[in-house]
Structure formats: structure tokens, C-alpha cells
Design a binder for these strands. Structure first.
Lengths: 341, 341
DNA sequence: GTGAAAGCGCTAACAG
DNA sequence: CTGTTAGCGCTTTCAC
């Protein structure tokens, strides 16, 4: 198959005996051009198989129409849902998404940010890695007025827009529910990370305990990578405790599932002996037996909100301040894994 | 924060009192330029925060350094693994990935292809949607010599490179294993799709049955969308059959899990009453109880192979023919869900 | 309402 | 080994 020649606005201009400026205007629906010519232009463009050269346009208009996204990992239901939500809006608005993974590594996140910066994304959407403890690597974006929005895993005390849920409140509700089930010794498995998301979940856990007149016991707060294997490992550690907890609140579903699997293998009855609750409402939570009590929040919606705010900024139609925190709703979903009664 | 001025090679040229050509060469490691100047250039570039304008470069060199990827859905473990594999290689080679979802819709796949075509991706990697029954929408790419490679869900009888596993063989092995467990009435749940992947799995299933002196019974071959809910629905249909199958070979894990859940809810013992096998070795297969027998194949590797072939073509260092089929290994993983003995 | 022309930042052919 | 220069295809002032 021989290579077909690319059509440019010059070709169209020549054929219609008008100037390239007119073609350009017609193609961009500039009201200055008559409806008639606009019609003729778009017809010919279609007929000749013209496609705008985004490179040339971008070079001229100093924008790539590309949004960079950095996520810890692609392989979670939540993340893919978020991205799907972002994609829907982005494509409607004429933006492409370039998605990178940090694999929970700060260095990879920095590298990814650099890469996207070099590639001149118009904006950046980031969910931070476990290891991330500052936002210096986004400074180059800020200096060039490239908007950066954090979603799900953001940080406080910065000048960026954050889109997340009220993690403290959600964790508080989970813990309170566990207390209401009569649990007296509630362990908490969380990420080995300084991110506020996890600190907030811990705070919620603590608040519920405190309100119930209990105190947080350090040995009951266990940190790991929240993977399924980590769940299994932590369960083993818990089984070795002299005084075993009677409930475990895990900061994500995957890890909670690993935990339940291990507990069951060792003959522990869930929830009778130990109740378990997770976080995220991953589909896996209704596959594990007993089905997992968890916190649900809409990744799809979060993605839409984050990208909408970003595009609003890009198009200069923003109403929101930077430095604002956008809180999305979440809800406790109670299933068998926590029902002692 | 005031907007920082963008540095160009002209700025560097002026400051170093050399021509832009020299700068350009130095930056691209052209051996024609002395090591000394190259050194000076890269130092200054670093110091001034220079970043190549990919737009300008692309406009000049007629390439976007972008690879388009179309997948049915992002939210499967297999898919995210494939993409991770692709990403690793792509970024090493200086390419970005733009990933689109078809949501199993032919129209969405066509739209996605058009979008990527307009955005001038240098190459395309596609895993076809259920509904796709021809490859006409890739014709525009072929005409412009833009390489298109199909992975996982490809088609035969076309001029494109295909990267997949031997589905017939894999399905044959699953079915044979089920027969060896003493199953006499093996049902097959597959996609409601004309794709060869599923036709091949059916062929493997058929071959095993035929070899065992059995025939395929139409009522035992059930088509659906292979989602978890479809698995549940199909299980219900199976439970209503006068003569129930004693084994079900499902064409993916997700659906198999939905199936097992429903069977168990209705008091059917898996595998004793009905054995179940899936396909893909999704992590969910070791969460469901009993753990699911399935077919494992490396998405990561498949992604790497597909993108490597694509980039080889792009860089003109290809050895493989188009129209070639690249077969990757797969293996049967036997777990409790199929062990009658 | 339309056209002429400059220039976005880079690469590569050509000349030296 | 290095410099000059012509575009790549588009948008956008500034004229008319």
C-alpha cells in the first residue's frame, strides 16, 4: 500500500481558491467567516481526508492538549475507574490523557513528573505514592503555571487543589461500627506511608476509640504495603499476639482480603472471632467470604471532578481557588465480615 | 509565582556563541560535534532548565513519539499488566502511550481509532472489542504506513501482526483436564462475540470432547458478556437445566467467579457437583473458594512483545514480517475448583 | 469577510 | 567540525 500524501490547509486553500487564513478560521468555526465558505471548507476537508496537524497547532498555540496523570498503580479497580471518569470528560474537551505509574515509589513519581514536564502536558493529575513526603517535584509545573491537581491521595498544606474524600470521617464510621458490634480490641492495618490519607484514617480510628473511652494501642497499629500478601503476613503476626484483637480495620480491601484468607486458614472464624473491615469497595470485597465490610466512594466521579477542575483552570473558566480541598462523599457498606450480631 | 520564560535552542546558541545547529546536534548526541562543546551545551541546557519542544521536533520530523493503545477495558488485572509491560519498553524508547477503552463496543473502538489517527500516533496497539467483526477502521492507518499490532484479542486473515497465545491449545488442555477428572457433561460459557479468540477456545473445547468420543451439545455452550453478573445469570440458567452439566469451562475468571458464587448460593458443591474452570489467572481466582483452576499467561510479557515489535517497525529495524502471528506460552493452573478426585 | 505574512522551535540539507 | 537557512503546518495580528 503506497503512502498517502498528507493534506494540509494549503492544499484546501489552493483548491478552494481562498487563503489559508480562511481555511484555518473556517475549520475553527470562527464566526468571522461566512457560513457558506465554512460549509465548503468542511466539505472539502472531509472529502480530502484532511486531519489537523496537532503538532503544528500545538507549536503555534503553545499547548499539547495533553493531560498527564500519575497514579501509584494501574491495577486496581479504583484507579481504573478514576481514569475512566477522567477520560470521558477529557476527550469531550479535546484533551488526551497520558497515564504513568509511580509503583508507590517517590523516585518513580519524580521521574514520571519530569517526563510529563518535558513532554509539556498542559496539566497534571496526581495521586501520590506511599513514599512521597513533599511536593518539590511539582515545583517546575507551578513555576510555569501548569495546573497540578491531587486526587484521592493528596496532601494538606500546599497550594494545590485536592480532590478526595473525608478519610477521617470514613474511618471513624468504620471503627464506630466495629465498636457497635461489640468489638473491644480493634487493630488497624495501614500503609507504611506519611501520606495524610492514611494519617487521616488513623485519626478517624483514634477518634472513635477515644469517644468510646478506649485508647489506641501501638501494637494494634500495623503498617505495611497494603498488598494482599502483606495482609496475609500481618494476619500471621496478629495470630501470634498474646492478646489477639477481635477486629481489624484494614486501610484497603486488597489487604483485608489477604488478611481474611490467612485468618480462615488458621481456623479463625470471621467475624465471630475476629471481625474485619476494609476500604474502597473493590469488587473483590463481594468475592471473599465472608463478604467484606468496607467504605465505598465513586472513583468515576472523583476522576470527573478532578479533570473538570483541571480543564476549567486550563480554559480560564475557573471559579474555584487553588489551594482548595474538594471533598467527595463516601459511605460505609456493611457486610458479613463485621457483623458479630 | 510569575511565569518563567521558556528556553529555546536559540537562547543556548546565543549564550554559547555557536549556531542553533550545533546546539541541536549536541543535544541529540550527534557524533559530528566535539565532546567538549557537547559537554558545554548539555551543561548550559541543564542550568537554564531547557526542555526540548517535542511539538516543534515532531512537526519537523513528522512523528509524535506517541503510541496509541485501544483496550476493551482498563479495569482488569490482565489489561493493566499488559499496559504496564508496554509502558516500560515504550518510555525507554522515548515513546508515550495514550490508552483508550472501547468498552467492548465496536463503535467506541472505531471512534477511538479515529481519535488516535487524528492525533497522529506513530503506531497502534489494539486488543479488539467483542463486537468487532472487521478491521476496516484500521485501514486509514495502514494506508499511511502506520503500523498496527493486535494483541491478546486479534483476528486471523489480515495483514497485521498478531501477538497472542494458543487459545485452542489452552482451552483443549482445560477441557481435557476436566475430562480426566471424570466430568461427562462439560458446559462452556464464552463471549457473545465473533472474535477468533473465543472461537479458538471453543475449538479447543470441542477437540477435547471429540477426542474423548463426546459431542458438543449446543445447550451446553452459553454465550454472554463474561462479566461477573453474567456468570451468576448463566449459573441460574444452568441450574434450571433438566440434565445439569457436571463441569463448566468459563472463558474468563471473572465470569467463572460469578458462576461459582451463584452455584454455591444454591447449595451446589464446587467441584463435587459441578467443577469450574476459568481463564486468565486473575488474582480473584485465588480469592474465590474453592480457588479457581484457570489458564495463566503473562500479560506483562505480552505487552512487552507487542510494543517491542511495534517500535522495531517504527525504527525500521524490524525482522518480523507483517501478517505474522506471535504465539506466547500459556499454562494450565489446576486448583481446587476442578479437582473431583 | 478575507488575505498576507510572521513566526512557534526544531531539524537537516547544504555549504564551508 | 560548524554555520546558514529553509521549511514542517498552523494561528493570528494587521491590513484591506
Amino acid at each position: 500500500m503506497s503512502k498517502v500524501q498528507e493534506i494540509t490547509i494549503y492544499d484546501l486553500a489552493k483548491e478552494l481558491k481562498v487563503s489559508v487564513a480562511t481555511i484555518s478560521r473556517a475549520l475553527n468555526n470562527d464566526p468571522a467567516v461566512t457560513t457558506a465558505t465554512r460549509q465548503r471548507v468542511s466539505e472539502l476537508a472531509e472529502k480530502r481526508g484532511y486531519r489537523t496537524n496537532t503538532l503544528a497547532r500545538g507549536l503555534r498555540s503553545q499547548s499539547t492538549k495533553t493531560i498527564g496523570v500519575i497514579v501509584p498503580r494501574l491495577n486496581s479497580y479504583f484507579t481504573s475507574t478514576v481514569i475512566t471518569g477522567m477520560q470521558g470528560i477529557a476527550y469531550e474537551e479535546g484533551y488526551s490523557l497520558v497515564v504513568l505509574q509511580s509503583f508507590e515509589s517517590k523516585q518513580k513519581e519524580i521521574d514520571g513528573a519530569k517526563c510529563l514536564f518535558r513532554n509539556r502536558v498542559d496539566g497534571l493529575l496526581v495521586s501520590l505514592s506511599y513514599e512521597t513526603d513533599n511536593l518539590d517535584h511539582f515545583q517546575s509545573f507551578i513555576q510555569k503555571d501548569i495546573p497540578v491537581i491531587l486526587f484521592d491521595r493528596g496532601e494538606r498544606g500546599n497550594s494545590l487543589t485536592n480532590v478526595f474524600i473525608d478519610n477521617k470521617k470514613a474511618a471513624y464510621e468504620v471503627t464506630k461500627h466495629l465498636l457497635e458490634q461489640g468489638c473491644k480490641r480493634i487493630a488497624h492495618i495501614t500503609a507504611n506511608s506519611g501520606l495524610h490519607v492514611y494519617a487521616d484514617r488513623y485519626e478517624g480510628y483514634k477518634k472513635a476509640l477515644t469517644e468510646a473511652g478506649m485508647t489506641v494501642k501501638d501494637k494494634y497499629v500495623i503498617k505495611g504495603d497494603l498488598g494482599m500478601e502483606a495482609g496475609t503476613a500481618t494476619a500471621h503476626a496478629i495470630l501470634k499476639m498474646k492478646q489477639r484483637p477481635d477486629a481489624i480495620f484494614v486501610a484497603n480491601d486488597n489487604c483485608a482480603v489477604g488478611c481474611i484468607k490467612a485468618l480462615k486458614q488458621h481456623g479463625i472464624r470471621v467475624p465471630t472471632d475476629i471481625a474485619v473491615a476494609g476500604f474502597n469497595n473493590d469488587p473483590i470485597s463481594i468475592v471473599i467470604e465472608p463478604n467484606l465490610t468496607t467504605v465505598d466512594y465513586q472513583g468515576h466521579h472523583m476522576g470527573e471532578v478532578a479533570v473538570t477542575h483541571l480543564i476549567d483552570k486550563l480554559k480560564g473558566r475557573t471559579a474555584t481557588e487553588s489551594n482548595s480541598a474538594i471533598l467527595l462523599p463516601s459511605s460505609l457498606i456493611i457486610r458479613e465480615s463485621s457483623l458479630k450480631k
